[in-house]
Computed example of a mutant assay.
Amino acid sequence: MTTTCYRKRPVEVDTVQWTGDNEAELVEFTGHRFEAIPAAARAENPDVTAQVYDELHDTWVGVKTGQHIVRGVKGEFYPIAEDVLAETYERVEPGPAATEATDARTTTRVFAALHRAAEQDVTRVIDLYERWVKAGPPPIGTPMSRWWDKRLVELHDAILPPKTQLRTPDELRERAETDDITIHPAACTCTYGARCPNCRA
């Protein structure tokens, strides 16, 4: 017979001890998977004063007063006696170094997300600027206030894009009809579509 030796990986788990009168705390800790058993319902096993639902095994597990409720590595909950807990685990006190490292990681993630969002905004504005340069000045006879208003709307949409982007030519035509804009495809070869000052009357 050949045996293989394994060592259990070091894991950290969270626990809350069932004292008999902290049901609300354990209900919150387990996400409503814990309930105390009334004294009248404990006739068969009077030592079991509560129960916790173990999703991993899809069953309710009896809990005795003084036992700890452990949240396992897969999010499951199970009871463990205090002496077994002391033999199996050692208490971890969060030190300042661990807290600082966690804060640093969180800050890094936040700044990375902000950087990505800002980079996307800048890319959209640069693309808009290049389209403006390609389109050239407003057509003769176009009121400047109307032309600038359209540019400001385009700039606003580039910085804060609308939730639904117009993509198909039919959608562009519908937008032009609702905005009373006439599209002249042969007048300009830009990519503005309905929003181009050279493609409308």
Rank of each mutant, 00 (worst) to 15 (best):
D121E: 14
A113W: 14
Q120D: 09
A36V: 11
D47I: 06
A104E: 12
R7H: 13
P143E: 06
Y6E: 05
P94T: 01
R173Q: 14
A201P: 05
V84A: 08
E130R: 15
E154Q: 15
R124Q: 10
E25F: 07
F111G: 05
E130N: 05
T108R: 11
A158E: 09
R7G: 04
R151G: 03
D157P: 12
V63G: 02
I69W: 09
H184G: 08
T182R: 11
I126G: 06
L155F: 06
V61E: 08
R167F: 00
T178C: 11
G72V: 03
D180V: 01
P161D: 10
R124K: 12
E119I: 10
A112W: 03
A117K: 15
H57D: 14
P46Q: 10
E90M: 09
E154D: 15
V48T: 07
I126L: 15
E154M: 03
R42E: 00
L152I: 06
E174P: 00
E87N: 07
P138S: 01
A113Q: 10
A43K: 15
V61Q: 14
C188E: 09
P161W: 09
E90N: 06
E23A: 14
A101T: 11
A36E: 04
K74P: 12
T4N: 01
H57E: 03
V11G: 06
E44S: 00
T102S: 04
T123Y: 03
I126D: 08
A118G: 13
I140T: 13
I80L: 14
Q67E: 15
W18R: 00
V13F: 10
Q165T: 12
T88H: 01
D179N: 13
A194C: 05
R7T: 01
D47G: 11
L160F: 12
V27Q: 15
S145P: 12
A41V: 03
F111P: 07
Y129T: 02
D103Y: 13
P79F: 02
R105C: 01
L155W: 04
F77R: 00
A113L: 12
E25S: 10
E119C: 04
R173S: 12
E28M: 02
A97E: 04
A117S: 14
G66K: 06
T189V: 06
F77M: 08
E23P: 00
Y78N: 02
E130D: 13
V133I: 09
T65V: 13
D180E: 14
T3P: 06
T108N: 01
E87Q: 13
V48Y: 12
T15N: 05
W18I: 04
V125S: 10
D21E: 13
Q67C: 12
V125C: 08
A112C: 12
C199Y: 01
E55Y: 05
E93T: 01
P137N: 09
H184C: 13
E76K: 01
P185S: 05
V122G: 07
A39T: 14
G31A: 08
N22H: 01
K163E: 02
V70Q: 11
E119N: 07
Y78F: 15
E90I: 11
A41Y: 06
L155A: 03
Y89V: 02
G141C: 07
K134H: 05
G141W: 12
V11N: 04
H115D: 00
E12L: 07
T178D: 14
L85I: 04
P169T: 02
K163W: 05
R7M: 00
Y53N: 02
G72M: 08
